[in-house]
């Protein structure tokens, strides 16, 4: 069996409010904390949806669109940078599992 890349895997996820151009992010990340003093920046590899990325200058960036609401980042970040909440059903994003 061909192994899927993460982008292909996320392509199988049924997201909510996908047609909405403006969504309210359910996770707020203070990337200033990530980029000033964090010794590991681990969210850039532990997030199963790769919502946290690192650029060439080792700066952490966050996007909420691909989030599958697992919660991993909330536990992994021990620096207080992740303010985690559940998405708003109307104006948030998040998932709608077909199988679960």
């Amino acid at each position: 069996m061909k192994l899927l890349k993460l982008t292909e895997r996320l392509g199988l996820v049924n997201y909510r409010n996908q047609s909405k151009s403006e969504i309210k992010p359910h996770i707020i990340v203070d990337t200033d904390i990530c980029n000033s003093g964090c010794p590991h920046k681990c969210t850039t590899w532990v997030c199963p949806a790769n919502c946290y990325t690192m650029d060439e200058e080792n700066k952490v960036h966050f996007q909420v669109e691909d989030c599958i609401e697992c919660g991993t980042c909330m536990y992994a970040c021990d620096q207080g940078a992740v303010d985690w909440n559940y998405p708003d059903p109307e104006i948030g994003r998040g998932v709608n599992w077909n199988f679960g």
Binding site: M1, L4, Y75, F99
Partner: peptide, 23 residues
């Protein structure tokens, strides 16, 4: 995990239909 020969034999010809995660 999926590249292990035992697992690869099991999932051969299967089609992935969902990817999910949960803490």
């Amino acid at each position: 995990f999926k590249t292990h020969p035992t697992i690869a034999d099991i999932i051969k010809d299967g089609e992935i239909v969902e990817y999910s995660a949960h803490v």
